[in-house]
Design a protein around this nucleic acid. Structure first.
Lengths: 237, 237
DNA sequence: AAGTGGTCTAGACCACTTG
DNA sequence: AAGTGGTCTAGACCACTTT
């Protein structure tokens, strides 16, 4: 296998193991190259790919840093809801529910679990400009997020993905999403303050960590009277 | 400015001018490097970026080719509708309308035209498995696609984007999309064979050529009873 | 001034495709 | 066998940030 790919895998392993901490600088390129026993060009090629995926972040003159799942990253990579006029705003989040259950068939399939595995089900309501806009239902595998409690979740200092990264070493690097229109059910309609059956956007997102491993299933019911879901069709790699 | 960026710009210019034709091979790397007066490493870096954008395509042992807007490329980069079970199929397309008009405010804004510029409005119905699923309304600037006729459009041999590329030198490299749920209006409801007011997905897509220049506005009304709109949240570059 | 990443070069050798 | 892109190396020099 190509040498630079092995170097890349080792860098990922060092991030997952916690050897390189989110937000902290890596050793400089010369030292990393020596440590891995490769030339600087090869080391740079490995880092290049991780920078393209926003796993690492380079700043000329300062160093190379491990990417953090902070508010900024969340807003520009994962929060794809904005006003029809293009207004973007960090949502206010209210926790509605936090329960342990057995995975249903869909959850087990997308999260790669066996039939009766334990999962956490978390329910949130997101507001923009004081108005409720998104009703989120999140499913997590208890095996991947061991001993996550409601208190720990509710009192996290940063974003949800930052909690995954710091407390469980799970770095979300991308997601697959599927959208459809449907009529609002009673629960979502009440929360979003619209009539039952009104057209709402339903987005199912599977957040993934390295090697496309699924980490989270999130179903969002979105009121698109004032907001829209934005996306882009660039060439996949 | 960095040398490899100048080389990249020149390669793009040679594609736009028709010097390098879609589907045809470029000169080999050694010759290109000599032609531009740079080392092979620098030439490769410029080509690397164009390959990442799927503008060029490399095949080891064969050569480097200009990417074509063929059916395959359309399906995996731009046609983001698939069955709920993941079934993907090339749509059957029926032309419903082809008219010249003056741009309205929204069209003028997103296509970067002055208020009263002439535009083409094209209307299509896309079917999957024999059932109508997508009602498309396309707007093009007459200035960017001069003398495009209904016959030329209807009798194109390949995809719509392939026509743009071959007949007008407009290479679509990406798109921005905005989705919302709404109730079907009378026109779309009739075409999609569902009751007026049924929840449908509305996707507005701005297709872009190099330097993010807008080339096409397309509004799709999608029946999501059986199909879904798929997207992915990878880190933008 | 010292340390970091960014660019460019020149060349060797490997892997793959074609004739 | 000849021609193509793919990988790796070693080093020089530039641009930027920090001390």
């Amino acid at each position: 296998m190509a040498l630079y790919r092995q170097v890349k895998r080792q860098l990922i392993a060092d991030i997952q193991s916690g050897k390189f901490q989110p937000g902290k600088a890596l050793p400089n390129e010369t030292e990393l190259a020596q440590r891995f026993g490769v030339s600087i060009g090869t080391l740079r090629r490995a880092v290049d790919e991780l920078v393209a995926d926003h796993v690492l972040l380079r700043q000329q003159g300062r160093g190379t840093f491990v990417g953090q799942q902070d508010n900024d990253r969340f807003m520009y990579q994962f929060f794809k809801i904005e006003g029809r006029d293009g207004t973007r705003e960090f949502p206010q989040i209210r926790l509605l529910g936090f329960d342990v259950a057995r995975a249903n068939a869909e959850e087990a399939q997308v999260l790669g679990l066996h039939g009766a595995a334990r999962v956490l089900r978390i329910e949130n309501l997101l507001s923009l400009q004081g108005r409720p806009v998104v009703h989120d239902r999140i499913t997590l595998s208890c095996a991947l997020f061991p001993r996550l409690t409601r208190e720990q979740f509710a009192q996290r200092p940063g974003t949800i993905y930052e909690l995954y990264q710091r407390a469980f070493g799970v770095t979300v690097v991308g997601a697959d999403e599927r959208a459809r229109a449907e009529g609002a059910d009673a629960a979502s309609a009440a929360l979003l303050q619209l009539p039952v059956g009104s057209p709402v956007l339903r987005v199912a997102r599977i957040a993934r960590t390295f090697d496309r491993q699924p980490a989270e299933l999130r179903v969002s019911i979105i009121d698109t009277r004032v907001h829209e879901f934005v996306s882009s069709a660039s060439a996949p790699r």
